[in-house]
Design a protein around this nucleic acid. Structure first.
Lengths: 223, 223
DNA sequence: CGTCACATTGAATCCGGTCAAGCTGCGTGG
DNA sequence: CCACGCAGCTTGACCGGATTCAATGTGACG
C-alpha cells in the first residue's frame, strides 16, 4: 500500500457510518489548487481518482515539489488535525475527484476512534519519513542520484509497470527538476545521457525506464 | 514555546494522574544513545534536563543531523505512537535526564485523552514543518544562507540570549556542518568571514552572534 | 503550417567539496 | 609546572559538478 493510503481502513462501524452520512464529492480541474499555503482547511479531501502534487513556492521564485500522491491520499490531513494553516500547496495534476468531509467531523472522529487516530499517525509518520529521506538525499547525493531515485520512486508509486524492468512515467524535465531541486538543464542532460546508455527512453513529457536495475546502480553507487 | 515541548500540557486530570503514577527517571551520559535507528521503543522518554541530537548516518559514512531538542522534548514520539521502529537516532549531547513511561501506556492515554492526541499531532506536525523547511533550504539556499539560518534558529531555540542582538551558541564547526549538510571547511571559512565582518565572534566549540539583524540579511538575501 | 511549450546542447562561470599543511587552545601526565 | 599530544580550527590550492545563459531544435495541437 502507498504510504498515504488507508486513512479509513478498519475503522469502527460507527465511524464508517458517520463518514458515509457526511461524505460529499468534489472535482478539481487540472492545475486547480485543492488547498493553498496559508489556508486553514475547513474540510478534509481524499483523492478518489487522479493525482495531486504537493509543493511550495520557494524564495528564489521557482517551485519545490515535495511529493505526488494518488488515489486514497488525504489532503491537508495535518492541517485539519491540528486545526492550523497549510504549510504546503496541493494542486491537481490532471482532473481529480475527491470525497470530502467537514474538518470538525474528522477531528471529532479522531478522538472517538483509536483506529482512525492510528491510521492518521501512520500517514503523517510516512510523510515525515519521506521528507527526511529527501532531505538526506538533497545534502549528500549528486543530481544524477537524486534524479534516478526520483524516477524509481515514481515508478514504484504509480505502478504503471509494463514488466519488472520497464515502467512508464509521465513527467516533464521541468517537473523532474522541481522534484529533485535541480534545474531543467541538468535534468535534460542527465536523461539524454541515460538514453544513450539505454537505461531509459523518453519522449516529451514522458520517461520510460528500460533498465530499472541499471538505474538503481546509478542511484546507489554513482558510476 | 519550542515546537517540541508541551506534550502533556492541559491534559485531563485522569491522564495526569496516570502519568504521575507510572513515571520513572533515567539518565544518559554525554554521547549515549537514547534510541537508535531500527529500534522499536518500549517507552517514551521526555527530556527533563539537557539536550539531545536527532540524526541519522548517511550512505557516505558521515552523519546528517536533523535537529536538536531540549527540555520537554519527547523522544521517539512517532515510533511510540505508530508502534514502529525508529527512523532516526537520538543521542544525548552532554548529560541528559529524562522521565519515561511505558509506550503501551502512552498509546492507551492517547486514545482516551483528546487533548493529549492534539498535543502529539502538534509536535509531529512541527517536526514535519521543520524538516520541510530544511529540505527547502537544502535545495535552494547557498551554504552561507543555510549556516546563517541554522545559527539564528539555534539562537532562538536555546534562548541563551544576552540581549536582543547577541546570543551564545555552543556548537563546533563540525556539528554546524552536519546540521547544514556542508563540510567542516566551508563552515570554518564562512564563520571566519563573518568574524571579520563583525557579525559573529567565535571560540573553539562556540559561536556568539554579535549582529543578529546582519546575519538575518545574509540568511535571506545573500550579500 | 504556424506557433508555442518543451527539450537539447555548448560555453562560461562559480560555488563548494576535497586534500594538504599547519596552527591553537586545552587537558594530561611526567 | 611545563611539555606533549590531540582535537578542533584555519587557510591555500585545486578541481569538478551543477547552474546559468544563449541559441537552436522538435513535437503537439489548433
Amino acid at each position: 500500500m502507498r504510504w498515504f493510503a488507508g486513512l479509513f481502513d478498519r475503522v469502527a462501524p460507527s465511524t464508517s457510518a458517520a463518514l458515509a452520512a457526511h461524505r460529499r464529492a468534489a472535482t478539481f480541474a487540472a492545475g486547480a489548487d485543492v488547498l493553498r499555503t496559508g489556508e486553514r482547511p475547513d474540510s478534509l479531501h481524499c483523492v478518489r481518482r487522479g493525482k495531486v502534487k504537493v509543493w511550495r513556492p520557494v524564495r528564489s521564485g521557482s517551485t519545490m515539489t515535495f511529493y505526488y500522491m494518488g488515489d486514497g491520499a488525504p489532503i491537508g490531513l495535518i492541517a485539519v488535525l491540528r486545526d492550523s494553516a497549510m504549510g504546503l500547496t496541493v494542486t491537481a495534476v490532471g482532473a481529480v475527484d475527491t470525497w470530502y468531509w467537514p474538518a470538525a467531523l474528522i477531528r471529532r472522529l479522531l478522538h472517538e476512534d483509536a483506529r482512525l487516530a492510528a491510521n492518521g499517525m501512520r500517514i503523517i509518520g510516512g510523510a515525515l519519513g519521506m521528507v527526511s529521506d529527501r532531505l538526506e538525499d538533497a545534502t549528500g547525493a549528486s543530481a544524477h542520484q537524486q534524479i534516478a531515485r526520483a524516477l524509481l520512486r515514481l515508478a514504484g508509486e504509480q505502478a504503471d509497470q509494463r514488466s519488472e524492468r520497464e515502467a512508464v512515467i509521465d513527467i516533464s524535465r521541468q517537473e523532474l527538476a522541481d522534484l529533485t531541486g535541480t534545474t531543467l538543464y541538468t535534468a535534460s542532460r542527465t536523461l539524454s545521457d541515460w538514453g544513450r546508455q539505454g537505461l531509459i527512453a523518453s519522449r516529451r513529457g514522458r520517461v520510460t525506464i528500460k533498465d530499472a536495475a541499471g538505474l538503481a546502480t546509478v542511484a546507489d553507487v554513482e558510476v
